[in-house]
């Protein structure tokens, strides 16, 4: 495996420098806080705050989801590593406007420990903190063991929905409930074909034989449910979506997807997989959903949750109800993801 060419400077400063660049991209809308957080400059007093975060290197998330009607701030870790507790605290202090802060982030051991420590420090400073974990990857554990599921691309619709909810939420309880619903209704399945690389060393994040696809592999290359032969978009797409349908069926906390249901579908590229491939897979996904009588409420497509030049993609399905539709229809704007009011085809 050849070493990737990367335009970086000191390998130890990659995370800080990318966040500095992100702040520049926001052009005044956001500021750099403390050791390594990014926070909106104009959070209104009395707003229930939404804080996201995680390891860097997956740009544009999580920090690219700070914005209008989205998250108020992000605590940024080093490359593929959770942010330390003092960074979480610095971000918490900066977004808190007196009504408390909801932490919304992916379910990884390092993130949970560090955000929990950050929450303890924040509570010592009388900031009310709640946590909702994102665990949308259906291939990482069975529905009876969601606490062991990883958070992958479904985080984008989840943060979008929670961001909209945070604009109108009267209390931390209300925002927490909305975020929990967005998580419960969102399920994802991913595949990967070739690894990304660790920016500082250029070395691949995992190994996979040329002729195989890792079905259900995580965004850092965590093993999935099977290694299957390389195939076509039209063969792979129904296999992946079936895993999501099965999960809605098996999970006692939600109803199975059925005719007449409305869903949001998100096709995410892990970095190197092209928009061409994502669109070809989206076309097949629409056919599969239509064959089941499931209506597409809206569509997202693009490389939003990446792992450098890793190739592979994921499907995320969010089952919509009137409350979630209301949050979805709100416009939003960030470096990572923007949409107009309403929806395509609406």
């Amino acid at each position: 495996m050849s070493v990737q060419k990367k335009l970086i400077n000191d390998p130890l400063k990659v995370a800080n420098e990318l966040v500095e660049g992100l702040v520049d991209a926001y052009n005044g809308e956001c500021k750099y806080v403390g050791s390594r957080s990014i926070v909106k400059t104009d959070i209104p007093d009395g707003k229930v705050a939404l804080l996201v975060g995680g390891g860097s290197g997956h740009e544009p998330i999580y920090h690219g989801l700070v914005g209008r009607n989205l998250a108020d701030g992000a605590a940024c870790g080093d490359i593929f590593a959770a942010p330390p507790p003092d960074i979480v605290f610095e971000a918490t202090e900066a977004v808190d406007k007196g009504k408390g802060v909801l932490y919304l982030y992916g379910n990884y051991a390092g993130d949970v420990m560090n955000f929990d420590l950050g929450a303890e420090i924040s509570e010592d400073e009388d900031i009310d903190v709640r946590t909702v974990l994102i665990w949308d990857d259906v291939c990482s554990a069975p529905p009876t063991d969601k606490k062991n599921r990883r958070g992958i691309a479904g985080l984008v619709p989840i943060v979008k929905l929670a961001g909209a909810a945070s604009q109108t939420a009267e209390s931390l309880d209300e925002l927490e409930a909305a975020a929990k619903k967005a998580v419960l209704m969102t399920r994802s399945v991913g595949v990967s074909m070739t690894p990304g690389s660790i920016p500082a060393t250029g070395k691949p994040t995992f190994d996979i034989p040329e002729e195989l696809i890792g079905l259900g592999m995580g965004i850092h290359g965590e093993p999935g449910v099977a290694e299957i032969p390389m195939t076509t978009a039209d063969e792979l797409t129904p296999t992946m979506l079936d895993l999501i349908f099965e999960d809605f069926e098996r999970d006692e906390e939600v109803d199975a997807l059925k005719e007449g249901d409305e869903v949001l579908i998100f096709v995410n590229s892990l970095g190197a997989t092209t928009m061409m491939e994502c669109l070809i897979c989206l076309r097949k996904a629409k056919e599969v959903l239509q064959s089941k009588g499931i209506k597409i409420y809206d569509v997202m497509v693009g490389p939003l949750v990446t792992c450098q030049e890793m190739s592979g993609l994921s499907f995320s399905i969010t089952k919509m109800d009137d409350e979630l539709k209301g949050y979805w229809d709100a416009p939003c704007q960030s470096v990572c993801f923007s949409k107009m009011e309403g929806r395509y085809g609406g």
Partner: peptide, 15 residues
Amino acid sequence: MMSSMGGASGAVYGT
């Protein structure tokens, strides 16, 4: 250790 390392190991060694 906690502040400089981050990740799971910073949290557990720091703790």
